[in-house]
Simulated assay, not measured.
Amino acid sequence: MKLSEIQIKNLYKFTRQHYVEHYDVQTELVDHLANDIEQIWEEHPKITFEQARDKSFKKFGVFGFMDVVEKKQRQMTKKYFKVIFKFAKEWFRLPKIILTFFLLFAFYKIQELQNGYYIYATIYGVVIVLELIVLINNKRKAKQQFKITQKKWMFKDVIHMNGIGNSAIVFFYMFDFFLPNNTKDFLAMGDFRRVFSAILLTILVIFGYVTLVIIPKKAEQLLEETYPEYKLVKNL
C-alpha cells in the first residue's frame, strides 16, 4: 500500500514536531519513513498509519532524529569547507598567485615596522568583525526568507551562518596560538617565524575574501547544485 499525499504531509509535520527544522533533512527522513511504513504494512497490513509511523520512528533509538540531524550537520559543514578550499586554491594559480605573493611579501615587510604588530592585529580584527557582521546580517535575512517560504535548508544555513562563524573561530585560535601577543615579541621574531606569520595572515585575508565575497555570490548556484529541487521550491 502506498502512502497518500495527506499521510506524506503528516510525516513532514511529524519530523518538525521532533525538532527537524531543515526541509532537506525533513525530506530525507520522510522518504525513509514512507518506505519503512510501506514495508511494515506488507508485514502487518492491519495496523494503522499512525501505528506504523510510530513503529518506524522507534527504530531511530532514544534520541530520535537527532543523530541524523547531527550527521547531516557535519556533512554539510565538511562540504562548506571543501567549497572554501576549492575557491581558495584559485589564488595559487595565475594571475592571482602574483597578488598572493605580493600580500605575502608585504606582510613580511610590515613586521619590520615599529607598529607592525598593531597593523597585523588590525587586519585580523577587521576580517573577523566583517565575518561577524555578515553573520548577523545573514541571520536577519534568513528569518525574513523563512517567513516567506516556510522552509530552511541546512547547507544554506551552513553557508550563511554556521560556516562563517566556524571559520571566524578557527582564525581566532590560529592567530592567538601562533603569533606573539605584544609588540616587543613581535619585532623579536626570527626569520622562520616571520615567514610563517606572513603566510598565516595571507591565508586569513584570502579565506576572509572567499567567505565574505566569493561564496555569498555563488550561494544560490551552490544550493541548486546541492539540492536539485531547491530552485523549484524557492520559486513556489
Rank of each mutant, 00 (worst) to 15 (best):
F172I: 15
I128E: 12
K79P: 03
F186D: 00
F192S: 06
M174Y: 09
E229L: 14
Y12V: 06
Y173M: 14
A142E: 02
L29F: 12
Y173P: 04
N181M: 09
I119W: 07
N162L: 15
I98K: 02
M189T: 11
L204N: 12
E224Q: 14
P180I: 13
P180Y: 15
K55T: 07
L179E: 06
I169R: 15
I169V: 06
F101S: 10
I6H: 09
A142W: 02
F107H: 05
F65G: 01
Q145Y: 01
L187C: 01
I133K: 09
M174H: 15
N166E: 14
M161S: 10
K147D: 07
L201I: 10
L130K: 01
E220H: 05
N10A: 07
D36S: 13
Y117R: 02
M174Q: 12
E38I: 07
Q145V: 02
D157W: 15
Y12C: 06
I169Y: 10
F175M: 08
V30K: 00
Y12H: 03
I214H: 00
A142K: 06
F102N: 11
A121M: 04
I169W: 14
A121Q: 15
N10G: 09
V62K: 11
H18S: 09
V170E: 15
V127W: 02
L201M: 15
D185T: 03
Q144C: 13
D31A: 08
L3N: 05
I40H: 01
V210H: 01
H160P: 00
T122Y: 06
I169L: 09
